[in-house]
Design a protein around this nucleic acid. Structure first.
Lengths: 220, 220
DNA sequence: TGACTCATGCTACACCGTATAGTAAGTTAC
DNA sequence: GTAACTTACTATACGGTGTAGCATGAGTCA
């Protein structure tokens, strides 16, 4: 009928990714198909392909959108090194949890893209100032990012995804086969996603900054 | 023509998951379709559905197969606590890297299934002995597992997946926008996946076992 | 007015997971 | 021996997916 509608702003990447994020947030990741996307934009399913080469590229835009939400402005420049590192890590996680249903997308893309690296930039400076070598700084940030991603993926399965969060708890395991798990469940409690994240982050930061570290320089 | 072929062993879950693992290892994860699986087994695509309810369940079997490869027998019971913890973590990672192309499956399933928890059992004992509370033990193992998973996902994108491992390196970023990244690349080097894993593992273990930890008991 | 480009619509293809139904071989009961 | 039943498959088909290829109308510029 009418390609190139008159008096209508043409599509652009920004509106496309905006619609995609809305679909993911409201209806879940599996609802995001090119047809559904076109419908949300009031447009033919193929229209998006003029602006985005394929669906993988759309996922990259989603990653970029999530990562652009990282707000490192709250890092207190006067705070001790370990605190600044933790604040950065929290900002990272907070941004990801702002779009919980997009988490599998993050796990499916490389984190060494410009979009994912941008919020990491300041953290590199923090660690380098702390006296780590360049190689160690890269390693530390890599490890930290991977820890955060792992935590978020765990959060997704435990809290977000309806398929994986039900009926898979510790407590329904066979106590004979899992004596220690059963014991932990009986004697302890689940501290919660946030508390566990902080627990691991604290350990990681102290291990990194609190004393002598493993050397990476001797490695071949 | 001939349902229930004569003189032929009927299918079972074991043969199905074996075929699935072969396809994943040889041709990659995206090659694993129910049709391809049927072909590999010399059988109609729908035949597998008699033994496995759906594809998600097939992925669960893949997760189980990978996790069953975790070999904790190498842990030296006489070694210091931190070493035993590290040995356990390495065994976990080694098993996962034995099937690198299956890594996205692991990231897509919950790790709180029996299959994923089985190799974790002994680690719980190690940490509990170390003097952590039950709650802290659970948190520590959760964090460690999430770190390992994150590291493996990173390994996948950096080393395994052909779509994400090319042209996405640090060094092709704009030095003006990424001064710290550029500096790290210039002054340091990439220590390698294994070295970075060990670096983070060492930090994590020392943070967990090497001194006063953050308390989880005060949390509401 | 006519050529050119832009942004979109339309159709179609190959592939996917899987619901449903049919059917041959093996097992059991009488 | 044969009929009923169960087991383990085959065959067909449906609705969904990403996307290649082509058509088409609007806007811009000569």
């Amino acid at each position: 009928m009418a390609p190139r509608k008159k008096d209508v702003e043409p599509l652009d990447r920004e509106r496309i990714v905006e619609a995609a994020m809305t679909i993911i947030d409201d209806e879940g990741l599996e609802a995001l198909s090119m047809r559904r996307l076109g419908a949300a934009l009031g447009v033919n399913p193929m229209a998006a392909y003029y602006h985005v080469p394929n669906k993988a590229a759309l996922y990259d835009l989603v990653l970029e959108a999530v990562m652009s939400g990282v707000d490192l402005s709250a890092i207190d420049p006067a705070a001790p090194l370990a605190d600044r590192l933790k604040q950065g890590a929290r900002a990272y996680r907070t941004a990801i949890l702002a779009h919980p249903r997009a988490i599998p997308v993050l796990a499916s893309r490389s984190l060494r893209t410009a979009a994912a690296l941008r919020p990491v930039e300041p953290l590199l400076g923090i660690l380098f100032e702390a006296g780590l070598t360049a190689t160690e700084t890269v390693a530390a940030v890599d490890c930290l990012a991977q820890y955060i991603l792992g935590v978020c993926v765990g959060y997704y399965h435990h809290t977000v995804d309806e398929e994986t969060n039900v009926q898979r708890e510790f407590d329904e395991l066979d106590p004979a086969e899992f004596p220690n798990v059963s014991r932990m469940v009986a004697e302890g409690r689940y501290a919660g996603a946030e508390a566990e994240f902080e627990f691991g982050l604290d350990a990681f930061a102290r291990g990194l900054l609190g004393g002598p570290r493993m050397s990476l320089e001797a490695t071949s």
